[in-house]
Every structure is written in structure tokens, then in C-alpha cells.
């Protein structure tokens, strides 16, 4: 007999889920602290850390000056000797000036010390295009970070995942990058009560379908769901949607399994088309499911250009339901 334990669900916003996860982990572990620009007195540039300064005090919610390389490195050094920092980048765009700390120190220290030092640290913040923030503030940075061995990369698309993966990231003994999204911060979703933690490297099938697989991550889940609904309503092909959830480790097995059923794959992501985790997924799928493919794999990506400010042009640069539909039609017509 299977006993079902019903877990109570609550509706939260994405930013609240992140905040709850951090607060719960700070309650259970004195070594966890938050550091970043405007995380304390200002209550967070995007209000993710709202209220945490009052609750945990200035020792553990630390406002930094504008010095990403400096405070990222300080947090890495603190992690090496036993603390468990959470570093907020106001946006992931600004992580570029701390890139050396992540690439050369956080990701390398365990290996180049022969396993003597671990770096249990979380880097987090909003990633990708917000709304009309133009060329320098719209990078989908996961495309760079997913390549680096020694770190883990998480891209939660749902509110429940935002909480569960943030908790998992804080408890992990490796550097974990959590790439959130400003456009998701206000979204609402059900979150299970209690201490729910998700394992890295397990994709989620968000929608079952028969004819084509859409593999995606982060906020691009939304246009995929929208396109699938439109197709379902109009009697078009049935889409199965796989949300990868973590890009390193990357669960291509769930995608391969889905492709074995549908025979067709479209990879949808916001980042530029040149390389990146989407191309990596395509490479793995063609090797493991070559015989199952009825059409070439297509990618529906951000355009190969710097992000324009103009709203119309910005919308045309990022994938939406319309471009996803076009890609689905193309693989179906092959």
C-alpha cells in the first residue's frame, strides 16, 4: 500500500520563494550569509532580499560597495575556510567584472589544490533581458558559465524550483550559480511547504506531448508553454516540453527519452545562437538518439546581435511563442 503524504501548497511569487529559501537556510546554518550591492538597507535592487537585514542583522546581510571582483573574491576566500556565502550580483551582467574570480578561483580551487579546499558558495541574481535595458544589461550569461567544469549552473523557471534549487545550492559544497530572471520575479506559483530540496541534473517534463519535443530553460519555458497551448487549441502538433532546470550538470537523458517518443526536437533559449548549452544538448541528442530523429534538430534562440533598446526590436531579438511556433512548424514539415 502506498501512503500519500499530502504536502500543503502555498502560492508565492518567484522572488519570495528565493527569499524564503535563503532565510530558511540562514536559520539552520550560522555559516550562511548574504553579500552584495544594495542587498541590505535598500532591501535588494529587485527586492529579493527584502526584510533580511532586519531579520538577520548587518553581520549576515552585508551591503557592499560597487566592487564585484573584490567581494566575489572575498566570498570565495571565506568559503575556502568554512563559511557558506551567498553572493548577489545585482544582475548577472555585472558578474563579467568578477569573471576571473569565478573562472580562475571558485571553479579551480578544489582541483588545483588536489582536493584540499572546497568552495561552498552561491552566486545569484537576475539573468537575461529585462525590459528595454539595452545592450549591456541584457546578457544571457549562462552561455558562458555552463562551459566551466568545477561549478554548477541552475536556471529555475518555476516558483517551486526557485525555492528548492536555492536551498540545494546553499547546501551544496561546490560553487553554484543560480541564474534568476527579472521577468520571472513577479510570477506566482505553488510551493510545497517544508524542507523541499531538488537534486541537480534532473530535468522536468512540464507538458506531455507526442509529436515534437521542446527543450528549454529559465523564462523561455513561458513562450514554449504558450506555443504548445496555441497548437493544442488549433489541432496542431502536440508538444512535449522539457525544462532542463540545471545546465551543469545537464540532463540530456530526459530529452533523449522524449525524442525517442516524438522524433523531433526544438531547443529554445534566450542566449545567442553561437555555441552554448543549447548546442551542447543538440550534440548529445544527435549522438544518443540519431536513429530516433525524423528531422534535423532546430534551435530557436536569441538573435546573433547586441540587444537593441527599442521595444519592437527587443521583442524581435528574444524568442517568443511566435518564433517557437515557426520552429515547430519547420521540424514538422521536414
Amino acid at each position: 500500500m502506498r501512503v500519500m503524504v499530502e504536502s500543503r501548497m502555498r502560492e508565492l511569487r518567484y522572488r519570495e520563494a528565493l527569499r524564503e529559501a535563503m532565510a530558511e537556510e540562514m536559520e539552520r546554518d550560522e555559516r550562511v550569509f548574504i553579500m552584495g550591492e544594495e542587498v541590505g538597507h535598500y532591501q535588494g535592487a529587485y527586492k529579493v532580499t527584502e526584510g533580511l537585514l532586519a531579520r538577520f542583522g548587518a553581520k549576515r546581510v552585508i551591503d557592499t560597495p560597487i566592487a564585484e571582483e573584490g567581494f566575489a573574491g572575498i566570498a570565495i576566500g571565506a568559503a575556502m575556510v568554512g563559511l557558506r556565502p551567498i553572493v548577489e550580483f545585482m544582475t548577472w551582467n555585472f558578474s563579467a567584472v568578477a569573471f576571473d574570480q569565478i573562472l580562475s578561483n571558485a571553479a579551480k580551487l578544489r582541483q588545483m589544490s588536489g582536493g584540499q579546499f572546497t568552495v561552498p558558495i552561491v552566486f545569484r541574481g537576475p539573468n537575461g533581458a529585462a525590459k528595454q535595458t539595452a545592450a549591456q544589461h541584457s546578457h544571457a550569461m549562462e552561455t558562458f558559465y555552463a562551459q566551466i567544469p568545477g561549478i554548477k549552473v541552475v536556471v529555475p523557471a518555476t516558483v517551486a524550483d526557485a525555492k528548492a534549487f536555492m536551498k540545494a545550492a546553499i547546501r551544496d559544497d561546490n560553487p553554484v550559480l543560480v541564474l534568476e530572471d527579472e521577468r520571472l520575479y513577479g510570477t506566482k506559483g505553488e510551493v510545497p511547504d517544508g524542507d523541499h530540496v531538488e537534486p541537480f541534473g534532473v530535468a522536468a517534463v512540464r507538458r506531455a506531448g507526442e509529436d515534437v519535443t521542446l527543450a528549454t530553460w529559465g523564462k523561455m519555458l513561458l513562450p514554449c508553454l504558450e506555443a504548445a497551448e496555441q497548437l493544442a487549441k488549433s489541432g496542431g502538433p502536440s508538444c512535449e516540453i522539457v525544462d532542463l532546470r540545471t545546465l551543469r550538470p545537464l540532463d540530456h537523458h530526459t530529452v533523449v527519452e522524449s525524442v525517442r517518443k516524438t522524433g523531433r526536437l526544438v531547443v529554445v533559449h534566450e542566449a545567442w545562437p553561437y555555441g552554448g548549452p543549447g548546442a551542447e544538448l543538440v550534440d548529445r541528442v544527435q549522438r544518443e538518439a540519431f536513429d530516433a530523429l525524423d528531422a534535423p534538430v532546430l534551435r530557436c534562440t536569441g538573435r546573433d546581435a547586441a540587444m537593441p533598446y527599442n521595444k519592437k526590436l527587443e521583442d524581435m531579438t528574444i524568442p517568443d511563442a511566435k518564433t517557437v511556433l515557426a520552429a515547430v512548424r519547420a521540424v514538422m514539415a521536414y
Partner: peptide, 15 residues
């Protein structure tokens, strides 16, 4: 690149 790392060890010590 290691100078912030050292400051981080000092930070942990103070923490």
C-alpha cells in the same frame, strides 16, 4: 586575483 581571496579568509576570521 588572489588578493581578495586573502581578504576573504580575514573576513571569515572576523565573522
Amino acid at each position: 586575483g588572489h588578493v581578495p581571496i586573502a581578504a576573504g579568509a580575514a573576513f571569515a576570521s572576523k565573522y
